[in-house]
Simulated assay, not measured.
Amino acid sequence: MDRIEKILEFLKANPKDNFLRHALALEYIKLGDDLKARILFEEILKDSPDYVGSYYHLAKLLEKLEQTEKAIEYYEMGMAAAKAANDNHAYSELQAAYEDLIY
């Protein structure tokens, strides 16, 4: 059973598990299925706007898809979420990626 099948099996029991959905989105990116990955990241952040790690990966994906304005928006939301969570490491990573994009 491959990784995606395993994650999907776990998700049957826990369909809103953010860790599993995030892992599945990353697997979809590896396969080049950017649309499925984007949908998953957006669902995670809609359900759990405090799930900080997904902001970075969604924004990076949007950069890849040349949707710069949307990527900037997610970096900014991610920095706000990281700041609210007092997650300085995530904030720094989001800020660095944000600055690389806008400057």
Rank of each mutant, 00 (worst) to 15 (best):
E99Q: 14
V52N: 04
Y98E: 12
I44C: 01
K36H: 08
L40P: 01
I39Y: 01
L61H: 08
S54K: 04
D47P: 00
F41P: 05
I102R: 14
P49V: 07
H22Y: 13
H22V: 03
Y74C: 10
A25E: 02
Y75G: 10
Q67I: 01
E76M: 10
F19A: 05
L11W: 05
Y56K: 07
Q95N: 14
I102K: 15
S54L: 07
A59Q: 09
L45C: 01
Y55K: 01
Y103F: 13
L94V: 14
L20A: 10
R3F: 06
Y55Q: 06
H57R: 08
Y98Q: 12
D34M: 02
D87T: 12
K64V: 08
G32L: 10
D47R: 08
V52A: 04
D2M: 07
E66L: 10
K30W: 03
N86D: 15
I72S: 11
A37H: 06
N18Y: 03
K64H: 13
E42Y: 01
A85R: 14
Y51M: 06
N18P: 02
E73Q: 13
L31N: 10
A82W: 11
D33R: 13
A90V: 13
K30I: 01
D2Q: 08
Y74N: 13
Q67M: 14
A23E: 09
A71T: 08
D33P: 06
D2L: 08
H57K: 11
L58H: 07
Y98D: 12
E42A: 03
F10K: 04
P15G: 00
Y74K: 10
L101G: 10
E76G: 04
N18A: 09
K60L: 11
D87Y: 09
N88S: 15
Q95S: 15
I39E: 08
D34S: 02
D100M: 13
E66H: 12
Y103D: 12
E5H: 11
D87Q: 11
E5L: 09
N14Q: 09
H89L: 15
A81N: 10
D33C: 04
E66W: 06
E27Y: 02
N14Y: 03
D100E: 15
I4V: 12
G53T: 10
A13I: 05
H22W: 04
Y74F: 15
E93I: 15
Q67K: 15
E27K: 06
I102L: 13
L8K: 13
P15S: 05
K46F: 02
I72Y: 07
K46R: 09
K12R: 12
Y56R: 03
H22E: 03
D50H: 02
E43C: 00
Y91L: 15
K12P: 01
S54C: 08
Q95H: 15
Y55P: 07
Y28G: 07
I7F: 02
E76H: 04
Y98L: 10
E42C: 00
Q67Y: 05
I102H: 08
A13C: 00
L35F: 03
E99M: 11
F10D: 00
